Simulated assay, not measured.
Amino acid sequence: MDRAADDVKQAIAGELQLMDPRVRASRELAGQLLDPQFVEVGGSGRRWTYETMLSELPDHPGSSAEDPRFEPSDVSGVRLAPGLVHLTFETVLGEIRTRHSSIWRKGDGAAGWRMYYHQATRVPPGVE
């Protein structure tokens, strides 16, 4: 496998881990997957930082075993540069369908791949 494909594969693995309720409920596990400079523009329009996301993620939908689970689809990515990957995909969580774009960057040393930026856009019912 070439380096670009391997980078994309690793970023996708991190993205899928962030959808796991065990990871979402754990500040420690989620913190290993988010870059310290992380920023998100959520489907609600709210802006999240590393600290606000880690503080509030355990209370978000999909963060407990009793909640509906994220159902990802059409996950694809491209390596923008060494250590930088852009992913796009859709999720369904209960009745909510969302389109996502995220940028992952490889940290120094053992840090591995971490989400640097994420944007989510809710898809209204009936939109293809």
Rank of each mutant, 00 (worst) to 15 (best):
A4M: 11
D6I: 08
D6H: 10
V8A: 01
V8G: 06
Q10K: 13
Q10F: 10
I12E: 03
A13R: 09
A13K: 03
E15M: 08
Q17D: 11
Q17C: 05
P21H: 15
R22I: 13
R22N: 14
V23N: 01
E28C: 02
E28A: 14
A30Y: 00
Q32N: 07
F38A: 02
V39Q: 14
E40G: 01
V41D: 03
G42V: 00
G43T: 02
R46M: 13
W48H: 10
T49K: 05
Y50K: 10
E51G: 01
S55M: 12
E56G: 01
P58S: 10
P58A: 10
D59A: 12
H60P: 05
S64H: 13
S64K: 14
A65E: 15
R69E: 03
F70E: 07
F70N: 04
P72I: 06
P72W: 09
S73L: 04
D74Q: 15
V75A: 06
G77A: 01
G77Q: 01
R79V: 05
R79N: 04
R79F: 11
R79C: 08
A81W: 14
E90F: 13
G94W: 06
E95I: 00
R99F: 14
S101P: 03
G107R: 06
D108E: 14
A110T: 12
A111F: 10
G112N: 10
Y116F: 15
Y116C: 01
Y117A: 02
Y117D: 01
H118R: 12
H118C: 05
T121N: 06
R122C: 02
P125V: 08
